[in-house]
Design a binder for these strands. Structure first.
Length: 311
DNA sequence: TCATGCGGGCGAC
DNA sequence: GTCGCCCGCATGA
């Protein structure tokens, strides 16, 4: 369907050196190169018409991981896994946080979960959420292809994302963990009562078992090259600064405290906890943005998380 | 509950 | 035939 455009772009791609690896192959080739001299470090944010060859030992590659929200697409070819980009969930009111950041949530991959997510409201302004579809591949979503061949995992991306980066899977997972912690620490929970009891007896504040916290670092969220011209600087600087509100990408609707549809008043009932950190499982990327930390600075209608002062 | 992968099926081109 | 997309199902975390 879009082959003509692809071919043109492939030429461009082939002429460009990508870390020096072989790129004169296509994911649909009957035979893929096996004399690969150099394998790539895992790319968390592949964009544009790129190809990568990963080691079959690479855990991220094995999982066909991407920080873009990619859903499985049936291409009726069991040898090649195809995924298409779901875009990003934004605030329908195009609101900004107090420090000028936009809301870029990660679309749920599961269709039902995504529908549910879109019924939720913006955690910043309580406005409607809107799914900003990816149309970076000739008007269709960017597609990623994965193929396991011998010792290597071949990756090919077609299209250039025309939308901001959503929060990463890791961040979304962290938010879920935090929500679980919130539930456990809700004011009426026996667990919290127990902690308060301990606190009153000992004067000590129990350190958290493992509330996940990821700390952001500047420039952790560069936008796709093709998007940089379209948004403001403040939107680009999606890093956590002051405790003016909450995290840059915000949380998804699933994390809105009591579930269905509740608006998100800003940080009511905020409790302050010490800064916590916990290593995240997995190895998000081997280079570049990999292994970064994410600031979580939550407003929350239930409990806390306006709480982690940044360094 | 949700992410992920698989595969049937449909319509457009 | 290829591609995009919908759907349901299964599995695992």
């Amino acid at each position: 369907m879009l082959k003509g455009a692809d071919d043109v772009l492939m030429e461009h791609e082939d002429s460009a050196s990508q870390h020096g690896e072989m790129t004169n192959w296509d994911i649909n080739d009957i035979k893929l190169p096996q004399d690969v001299r150099q394998i790539d470090g895992f790319q968390e944010w592949p964009d544009s018409y790129v190809k990568h060859i990963y080691s079959s030992e690479d855990k991220n590659a094995q999982r066909h991981h991407s920080s873009w929200a990619m859903r499985n697409t049936n291409n009726h070819n069991s040898r090649i896994l195809k995924k298409s980009c779901l875009g990003v969930v934004v605030c329908g009111n195009d609101c900004s946080t107090l420090d000028g950041r936009k809301i870029y949530l990660r679309p749920a991959i599961c269709d039902k979960a995504r529908q549910k997510q879109q019924r939720k409201c913006c955690p910043n302004c309580s406005g409607p959420l809107r799914l900003l579809s990816c149309r970076g591949h000739g008007g269709y979503p960017v597609t990623n292809f994965w193929r396991h061949e011998g010792q290597f995992i071949f990756f090919q991306s077609k299209g250039a994302h025309d939308h901001p980066r959503p929060e990463t899977k890791l961040e979304a997972e962290a938010r879920r963990s935090i929500q679980k912690a919130q539930t456990a620490f809700s004011p009426s929970s026996p667990r919290l009562q127990r902690i308060q009891e301990i606190e009153s007896l000992t004067g000590a504040v129990p350190t958290q078992e493992a509330l996940p916290l990821l700390l952001s670092k500047p420039d952790a969220y560069p936008l796709p090259d093709n998007f940089r011209g379209h948004i403001s600087k403040s939107s680009r600087e999606l890093v956590l600064g002051s405790c003016s509100g909450w995290l840059p990408y915000s949380r998804t609707g699933e994390d809105m405290g009591s579930g269905e549809g509740g608006p998100c008043p800003m940080a009511s009932g905020t409790q302050h906890h010490g800064q916590l950190s916990a290593p995240l499982k997995g190895s998000e990327g081997h280079e570049g943005e990999g292994g970064r930390h994410v600031g979580l600075n939550y407003c929350n209608d239930d409990v806390f998380f306006n709480l982690y002062p940044l360094r």
